[in-house]
Design a protein around this nucleic acid. Structure first.
Length: 853
RNA sequence: GCGGACGUGGCGGAAUUGGUAGACGCGCUGGAUUUAGGUUCCAGUCCUUACGGGUCAGAGUUCGAGUCUCUGCGUCCGCACCA
């Protein structure tokens, strides 16, 4: 009798079809069961799955499958983050309508996902570009408008010259480049829509402490991004005029050391406060700055440049007049857009004062220093106040309080908390996004589209060129509408929303995905949410994860949900890296076919240039990608899943290695053979239990314990699979004299392996004669009786060094064990003629003899 | 500059949280099967002939340190003129 060979290409699609037709992964709504919501970040439908997706979805799938077997009702959905620029660019480049391009991509990626054997409930699928979804995105925007959280203002905004749109601060990297196009971002003054995320700054920061299931570094990044600082708001009256200049400072204790004030060049007071004599110079300075990119302007190593306005303000504490300047190092967007210059105690002010020969007045002495000597650089640490009138002799900490208090009492200022976080700019001058549901009327102003008129449909017939105005603005017929309030002719808003809004609430919609009457039923969302386990890339540490937390709090305050944090546990999976070839000198990326190995060195076939080989994140431009479809075709989904989970722990980067993929394929074949041999040559049945049998049973239950811990506590799928390999080896080597335990071993192995390799386990399960799906089996329970041992290996240490082990009865007491140890070979060798000063006994583990030296 | 994470065989990575360092896999070495290559199976694989020595380096706490503390070195990541 020949056993069938393991052929994933045949059995995987076969089982996928069976599961689909049986609705095996439909979400259970049995409220008797505890709920579990396992979610991967939904993908942008670019057209093809990459390995990063495969890793992300495999991790979440295992978690979902384990919970399902453990008796939870599991929500494990999938959808599409389907608005965005690539669709529009495809339309411009290839003349395909974004909607059709997107639908086609979704169809292909859905097929790819299904071939991975992922246990999604496809009945809850949706795409953010469908009106059934985005009408609720618009509805959400209207709620925020009513709450005063959505507003329009003129602002210096980040303009991406390549994608022809504005960007949020979060979408510009530290080099001043667009997160998407990589183009250097320019500054433009435009009227734009914002969401008032700053209203939640304090809560977004505070609640980070409650997110115990989040990686520390994500929380740190968010905390830094929010950037809370405490200090004082102080006002300096302008000499001879009514205006006052308000500044924010974290160092009110240095206020007696102010030798000038600086406004940001964009500050509205610049115009009125510039003296006639300085007008030409100031104008020229501002114009020069306007031409600089953010990066050029804010580079740290640049000399600080500025111009005096020719007017003065009075320091209320000293009654001394100080000159007012404008300078490039003061940011209009932060604080009040104006600062007090204290050169002695601020590095930037020090550099500026030196350059323009402004006075440097020391008002803080380092602890222990009593005399003022000229400073070589700014002293920025706390210290003792001098030259500060009534506050002399106080330490910085106390002085901060007292001076702020004094300012408050005398009407010069107040205590203030300042955040680095800015409001979220959501206007996009692009087509493929959610139309902002607002109407501009010359008589009524900005008027929201009535809820009954939602959705504001994105018009289909549009010509996309990528140039000029926002595409919607060119559709005169679409733009012209009667005002909902007065009925007179009015214009639609032509900007669309940042696609990050779509993804800031999609996790809520999955709880009630088909609702056509409301954004969702609150009781369903309150039942399923928060997400128990969220899995995605670290690149969203700030963007998506901060926005989602914000929107969740907004909906809570609107009374729609009863929780304030959307994601209980967050797992940020590492990158998938591919083997990369790059020429050493020219830095050119090569394919594996373009290189040749000579004398152990790698060289460019064409130029003979030396080539560096290393691992780097997979990407098309680096020729280091591995196509999931090809891997699936060659080894099948189970092998791909096993490899990805085994090669590295989920948070760490993963180096793709074909040899290791082979290794996983071999392992699955060993499992296959084990089961074939098992039911072809059934071992004889014996009733009595032997020590051999007890050992096997203990091994089986140790494996259950280990795999359960690795898949439900800290996720360590690599060690879970290692345990399954050990069990497989143990069962393969087992010289069976009783079949009952061996049966149990095979059954446990297959059920524990099922979440990782769903197809092969289902096939083998049925080969063993079972009718029901293995994925409906309960998770194996640890029998603690089986873990009990009658003999233990006790470690013998002498002075803390391991010198050997002894086998001892597990019930033996310390005195017995000590005697056994002394009589053992190790004892004879090391303890002869020595004085034992002390014995350390760790029950079940070790005996340590401390000798008199 | 500020903040965070990390440093273990040839490689990816384990180590019940202070108790036999190197599980599991890859690679490699030898052997068996095979006409051969591949597959499969068996044995070995931290260094050292041994005594011993080993978790980036150095110090400390402890009966005992990969694990805790301090110093230094190195790598990676985030933020960066935020007043």
């Amino acid at each position: 009798m020949t056993s069938p060979r393991y052929q994933p290409a045949e059995l995987e699609p076969r089982w996928q079809k069976v599961w689909r037709e049986a609705h095996l992964y439909k979400t259970s709504t049995n409220s008797e069961q505890p709920k579990y919501y396992a979610l991967s970040m939904f993908p942008y439908p670019s057209g093809n799955l990459h390995m990063g997706h495969v890793r992300n979805y495999t991790i979440t799938d295992v978690i979902a499958r384990v919970r399902r077997m453990q008796g939870y009702r599991v929500l494990h959905p999938m959808g599409w983050d389907a608005f965005g620029l690539p669709a529009e660019n495809a339309a411009i480049d290839r003349g395909i309508h974004p909607a059709r391009w997107t639908e086609r991509n979704i169809a292909n990626m859905r097929r790819q996902l299904q071939s991975l054997g992922l246990s999604y409930d496809w009945e809850r699928e949706f795409a953010s570009c469908h009106p059934e979804y985005y009408r609720w995105t618009q509805w959400l925007f209207l709620q925020m408008w009513q709450m005063g959280l959505a507003y329009q203002k003129f602002a210096q905004v980040n303009w991406d010259p390549v994608d022809q749109t504005v960007l949020a601060n979060e979408q510009v990297d530290s080099e001043g480049r667009s997160w998407r196009s990589g183009a250097k971002v320019e500054q433009k003054l435009l009227k734009q829509w914002f969401l008032r995320i700053t209203h939640y700054a304090e809560e977004l920061l505070q609640d980070l402490d409650t997110l115990t299931g989040w990686p520390e570094r994500v929380k740190t990044m968010q905390a830094n991004w929010i950037g809370r600082s405490t200090g004082a708001y102080l006002e300096f009256p302008v000499v001879g005029r009514g205006e006052k200049i308000g500044v924010f400072t974290t160092r009110p204790d240095t206020v007696f050391g102010v030798s000038y004030l600086v406004l940001a060049p964009e500050h509205p007071l610049v115009g009125t406060l510039t003296a006639l004599s300085q007008q030409a110079q100031v104008q020229e300075f501002c114009q020069r700055l306007a031409h600089l990119s953010v990066e050029e302007r804010t580079a740290n190593d640049q000399p600080k440049r500025g111009v005096p306005l020719g007017t003065e303000a009075v320091n209320p504490f000293t009654q001394q007049p100080v000159p007012i300047w404008i300078a490039d190092y003061v940011l209009y967007e932060y604080g009040t857009g104006a600062v007090m210059g204290v050169p002695a105690h601020d590095e930037r002010d020090f550099a500026f004062a030196q350059q323009y020969h402004l006075p440097i007045t020391q008002v803080i002495l380092p602890p222990g220093v009593v005399e003022i000597t000229p400073l070589p650089k700014a002293y920025t640490e706390p210290g003792i106040l001098v030259n500060s009138g009534e506050f002399d002799g106080l330490d910085s900490l106390t002085a901060k309080e007292k001076i702020t208090q004094a300012a408050q009492e005398r009407g010069w200022g107040e205590q203030r908390v300042q955040y680095r976080l800015r409001d979220w700019l959501i206007s996009r001058q692009r087509y493929w996004g959610v139309p902002i549901p607002m109407i501009h009327c010359d008589h009524c102003g900005v008027v929201p589209v009535p809820e009954a008129d939602l959705p504001v449909l994105l018009p289909e017939n549009v010509t996309l060129t990528g140039r000029g105005l926002s595409p919607l603005a060119q559709l005169t017929e679409w733009v012209q509408v009667p005002c909902p309030q007065c009925g007179r002719p009015a214009r639609r808003e032509t900007d669309t929303m940042d696609t990050f809004i779509d993804s800031s609430w999609y996790f809520l919609r999955f709880a009630d995905a088909q609702n056509s009457q409301a954004i969702f039923a609150s009781e369903k969302v309150n039942d399923w949410l928060p997400v128990d386990q969220y899995v995605g890339g670290i690149e969203h540490a700030i963007l998506h994860l901060l926005y989602s937390r914000f929107i969740t709090k907004v909906l809570r305050d609107r009374g729609l949900i009863n929780f304030g944090e959307p994601f209980q546990r967050l797992l940020t999976q590492g990158m998938v890296q591919g083997l990369t070839y790059k020429t050493v000198q020219t830095g050119k990326y090569l394919t594996s076919e373009q290189v040749i190995y000579e004398n152990g060195e790698c060289r460019d076939k064409e130029t003979n240039e030396p080539v560096a080989i290393f691992y780097e994140k997979m990407s098309k431009s680096k020729y280091n990608g591995v196509d999931p479809e090809q891997v699936l075709a060659k080894y099948g989904a189970d092998t791909a899943r096993m490899f990805i989970l085994f090669k590295a722990p989920p948070e760490k980067d993963l180096e793709w290695d074909d040899a290791d993929v082979e290794g996983q394929f071999r392992f699955l074949q060993r499992v296959w053979r084990l089961v074939q041999n098992y039911h072809e040559h059934p071992p004889p049945r014996v009733v009595e239990s032997t020590s051999n049998e007890r050992n096997l049973r203990r091994f089986i239950h140790q494996t259950i314990q280990a795999v359960t811990a690795d898949t439900t506590g800290e996720y360590q799928f690599n060690t879970a699979i290692a345990s399954l390999m050990k069990l497989t080896n143990e069962l393969t080597d087992y010289q069976g004299d009783n079949s009952g335990i061996f049966d149990e071993g095979i059954r446990v192995l297959l059920t524990l392996l099922a979440p990782f390799a769903p197809h092969i386990t289902e096939e083998l399960w049925h080969q063993l004669g079972h009718e029901d799906s293995i994925h409906r089996q309960p998770w194996p329970q640890v029998d603690h009786q089986a873990l009990v041992v009658d003999e233990i290996t006790l470690v013998i240490q002498i002075m803390g060094k391991t010198r050997g082990t002894i086998i001892a009865p597990s019930q033996a007491d310390q005195a017995t064990l000590e005697q056994l140890a002394k009589n053992s070979d190790v004892g004879q060798r090391y303890l002869q003629g020595q004085t034992i000063k002390k014995v350390i006994y760790v029950p079940g583990k070790l005996l340590n003899f401390v000798l008199a030296s």
